[in-house]
Structures are given as C-alpha cells and as structure tokens.
Design a protein around this nucleic acid. Structure first.
Length: 184
DNA sequence: CTTATGATGTACT
DNA sequence: GTACATCATAAGG
C-alpha cells in the first residue's frame, strides 16, 4: 500500500478504502479487519466537516499530508478514527465507520465484552474499541517505516468491491452529500 | 473564563 | 422509537 493511494479527492479515497485490510498488532496478537463502511469529510465545501471553518488545533492533521491517522473523542466517550487524504494544505479525511473481522476474532471479542459478533465493529466508536485504538494513535503515520502496531493493507483480491452510496449518518449538517460508502 | 455542542453507543419503553 | 451518559473542543464574552 502506498501513500499515493490516499493523495486524491477524499470521496475517491473513501471508496477505494472499502475492502482494504486494517491490521492491528498488540502484545496479545494480531487483528486483521476488512473495511466495509467509510465516510468522506472535506473542507470548505463540506459543512459537516471538522475542517469546514479552517485550521484548529484538533483538525490540523486533516490539512497535512495523506496517510495520517486522525483520532478524536466523540460525545465525551467514544473514539473515532480517520485516515487523512488529499495533498498538503488541502483538507480531507475518511472516517472508518465499520469493518468485519478477518483474523483475531477472540482478541476483538475481548475488547468488546458481551457484544454479539455481528455488532463487534459496525460503528465508528465500536471499531476503535474493538481494535483498541485511542487518542495515542492521533498523528500516527501509516506509511512511516517501523513498528507502531497499525498497518493498512490492500484488498486481498483484485476483484473490485461493489459499493453502495448513501447520505452520511449522525450529522446535522450537509446530510444530502452522498459521501457514505458501504461495501456490498 | 463560560458555555453549547456533537462524524455515538447503549439501555430502555 | 426515545433518553442519556460525558468531556474535549471551539467560539464567544
């Protein structure tokens, strides 16, 4: 996987991330998931985006280079994970909203006690909890050499995933933009 | 300093 | 379907 994969219009990047593998390595073992739900967030043209009104300390990563992990605390209790997109100075990020477990099911279960398998990772806060991703990953470079416990791998097959396109979820502004994508 | 708000999840009716 | 927990952030005074 290369950084150029994300150096493009965020909507394109959000679609191409579907089917990709996110690999999380911890002391307890390795978790591999397949991304099944993403949402694109841009800048001035996107009223629902954190970057809509320019740079702030929180959203600054959205304005930097692509391939950086952007994590923030949502509603005071859940973490949401994004991957930055576009070029330097052009704001954009893709919110990871859902995934399915490919490897390490018991590790994910351990992170989500009492939850049925079908609901382990079907939401942005659930995904970060299941993969044990928190604010310490904010600013993490997916493409820097070395071991950090998180990697992005291409889809396992060349076969393109079929994509369902809908309005975004859980926002009050710019709901009409069809920037949510679900792998079918 | 103060205050309103939210890219959510869970429990409950 | 509705209620609510809980706090960093951003914007305003």
């Amino acid at each position: 996987m290369e950084r150029t994969f994300l150096q493009r219009h965020t909507v394109e990047a959000a679609k191409q991330l579907l089917g990709c593998r996110l690999v999380r390595t911890t002391d307890s073992g390795r978790i591999v998931v397949r991304l099944t739900e993403t949402e694109a967030y841009r800048g001035p043209d996107d009223a629902a985006s954190h970057a809509h009104r320019g740079v702030t300390p929180r959203n600054r990563l959205m304005f930097g280079q692509a391939g950086i992990v952007y994590v923030y605390l949502s509603y005071g209790m859940h973490y949401c994970m994004n991957i930055t997109t576009e070029g330097e100075g052009e704001p954009g990020a893709v919110l990871l909203r859902g995934a399915e477990v490919v490897e390490g099911l018991d590790l994910v279960r351990a992170n989500r006690p009492g939850v049925p398998d079908a609901q382990l990772l079907n939401g942005p806060g659930k995904l970060t909890k299941g993969l044990a991703i928190d604010l310490s990953f904010n600013g993490y470079d997916l493409f820097s050499p070395g071991e950090g416990g998180l990697e992005l791998w291409p889809p396992e097959t060349e076969k393109p995933v079929s994509i369902e396109e809908t309005g975004r979820i859980g926002i009050t502004k710019a709901r009409e933009l069809p920037w949510r994508f679900v792998a079918r």
